[in-house]
Design a protein around this nucleic acid. Sequence first.
RNA 1: GGGCCAGUAGCCCAAUGGCAGAGGCAGGGGACUUAAAAUCCCCACAGUGCGGGUUCGAGUCCCGCCUGGCCCGCCA
Length: 949
Amino acid sequence: MADSYAFREIEPRWQARWEAERAFRAANPGEPGSAKPPFYVLDFFPYPSGAGLHVGHPLGYIASDIIARYKRMRGFNVLHPMGWDAFGLPAEQYAIETGVHPRETTRRNIETYKRQLRMIGLSYDWERELATCDPSYYRWTQWIFLKIFNSWYDPEHEWTDAAGRTVRGAARPIDRLPIPPDVRSQGESAVRDFQNQHRLAYLAEVPVNWCPALGTVLSNEEVTSEGRSERGNHPVYRRPLRQWMLRITEYADRLLSDLEGLDWPEPIKLMQRNWIGRSEGAYVDFPLESSENVIRVFTTRPDTLYGATYMVLAPEHRLVATITTAEQRAAVNAYVAEARKRSDLERTEVKTKTGVFTGAYAINPVNQRRIPIWIADYVLMGYGTGSIMAVPGSDKRDLEFAETFGLDVVQVVEPPAGVAWRGFEGDGVAVNSPPPGADGGADACVLNGLPTAEAKRRITHWLEERDRGEGTVQYKLRDWLFSRQRYWGEPFPILYRDDGAIIGVDESELPVTLPELDDFRPHASDDPNAEPQTPLSRSGAWTQVTLGGRMHRRELNTMPQWAGSCWYYLRFLDPHNERAFVDPAAERQWLAGAGADGKPKLGGVDLYMGGAEHAVLHLLYARFWHKVLYDLGHVSTPEPFGRLFNQGMITADSFRDERDVYVPAEQVTEGPPARMEIVQRTSEGQSRRQTIETTYYYQGRPVYRSADKMSKSKKNVVNPDAIIAEYGADTLRLYEMSMGPLEKGKPWNTHDIIGVHRFLQRVWRLVVPAETEGTEGRRDEVAQGGVNPKLGDRRDDALERLLHKTIKKVQGDIERFAFNTAIAQMIVWVSEAQKAEHVARDQVERFLRLLAPFAPHVAEELWQRLGGGECLARAAWPEYDEALTVDDSVEIAVQVRGKLRGRITVPAAASDDDVVAAARGLEAVQREIGGQALKRAVVVKGRLVNLIV
RNA sequence: GGGCCAGUAGCCCAAUGGCAGAGGCAGGGGACUUAAAAUCCCCACAGUGCGGGUUCGAGUCCCGCCUGGCCCGCCA
């Protein structure tokens, strides 16, 4: 790269200058610049891991930076902040291994990340930087938790929201919860219990993945399919633990319906809808044969009730113990014990259905038939009522179970012609309901002949009239398990008084700071029943507080990593406020943005850029917190993120040897074709032999290639520092944007970088002629007289027209996030400018303004050399003249019967008749149609003419 | 098993239903050079994964397959 322009000197210099001039400062209410229209561009903030950034990480950051810089040039007051999702497990894990405090590890990692991000020239307002592990930040995380804790959800409350819609249900302060007289009469502690049962943050015994060896609860993702811990491969047990839960399920309907008005990628909305999992159906009560109890089931197909030939309870169902007969008790107990040990994940792995008969029977409420009650782990305690009516005729899972255990299968739905009825799950027509010849009596519910939807309505109504069931809506969404047995997280602002009362820490006492610890290890044990001891339980005096003369114990769990990221976009609006989590005026200025066209004005961040990996949980949790804050009047918009954009993932070639082991990608060489036999493990855990061809070698042995996500473990990571050292940040930015559509996944290819680097080099040459350029250290001399003598006042007309086209194209492409095609167009202009005899200085200046959002350093440098005054970062976006973007004459294609026969050049304004006449004049056309009359002529203005004879 | 997205030149990718090529990499030739690098100029290369359909006209729309990527996971 000997002859490259001096990016190593230019880039850091401009980064320093931008910072010195506070070029990217966003103006809050009352500050200079706040009168401009606001625009909030936000990146998903990163967890600063020890490995630093690889080139896949900044893809979205570069794209959002282009938008931020472009919007500034278009006259917007742009808020573009960056911060750190800094609580989390890896730092704690590292602390356990090395003894280095997570605070220290985190500080170092943030430093590395920040250095790397600055090197890329991202236009963040660093004065708004924040880290979720900072007490000044988590003070307000705790404050928000207290707001949630001190609220209940009133499903009846009707109100009008900021978008003008009538909404039913809202979070309200807990002291507004009506206390029933019979509760009040039982005294203060009964009232307290009643309130605690209704709070949006509540304690509950819930089954969790408990790993005694690690001394902690694990998320489902941290448990392998073998039911062991991902880290360390220790056994994991299901056990109930008392945990903090957040009542997100109350918001299921609003979280679902407000998706409509958001400008988000449709697949992400779909994933959220699926996660919320709304399904309409009915509860049906099945009386037990031999007791007063009923078993309530949820079904989406009440119309198939006549086909229910048995019932299944989840092994954990509370009635299992009471209904099981003596003969079946041993088998049932064994099955329950076995099921308890297996994780949800493991249960789904099993391909054949298992289960045990309880010996008990229930009565089908529509036809009084006696049906057996089984338990099986294909029924999950966590969904619906934890029990089902099994209709093997209309449900594949039930059918499989029925066939395994020889249970009755009857048809109750007639499918469309040509489809087999056994296990048919779609809509059809009800049959055998009641079965022919059955004596249903006068009270029977007759469904025969009804289409499925109508049959559902009829039977639900029938059940409701007789008090044997009711229509209802179920959600897959579960309440949010909010405690973790970890150290490096936010402490709960919660105290337990000696009489058992749960007390929120007074707001004036916040933050509850993390106590210092030397030993971060959880309390490990071999005993699956050992009580968990969290790291905080070892923090001595910290664990107890005396208030008003009474002893209080502190909550010893910490919050999950999601907590800090649930509201950071709000703190960026007013990051140094010590009196409030955000100033209301600042909140309104930045978030009250417009709704998408024709949609309710839900507000929120104008552009939220990030990968699809957080499509469900982070976005759902943040939306939930936002809605609670909204209900309580702390924010002014129903939604936090108005527009979302997911950048695609950058993959990179990775290489594996014959054992399927990854080898370092940068040491792989190409060679002659060779065959190699590999053993691959399939998802089912089987291995498969395969012979493949390859041309890649590692240390002389053949290896094979695949495209993978960049990661240390796949040994295919490319470090941006190295790319910047060799080509500069502007080249890295340009390359990542030119790779392809932002939203698509695409492979990294270091060889291709040289292309955009050459482009920047040509831009440089347009302004700075080679013969006047000094070495890197002699910049000042160059600045004096070193402007390309070709640049003057004379404009080349064609070049001017091309410039207007280019401005239009680049502008339009930025607006639609098509940065790759914008760059291609800029390359075209520079190539033409290079060929042109005369280029006007102002033409280059306008071009540099186009280039500035993409390659800001080189654009600034050349702008300054051309005598530009203020920073280009604050210059205005160039205008284009529509009239100059269209050509006077156009070449159009001539087709005969859809086949290309020639081309003609006509004035752009030519009439259709003239075009047809000109086309008919072509010799090739004459030959084709001779004197035949035209049946039809299709003229597409400026494109083609198609003659049909 | 279900859902979403994508398959265009050796590679990465363009193309409001309208001439398959904007741009880049790699390749070939040439200019410059003592030579090389860098730079510049020129050239070649596919008929759009497969099979149907709609249309004056399909890479683009519809149906069915194949391949790849991502997400979901017995949700009653």
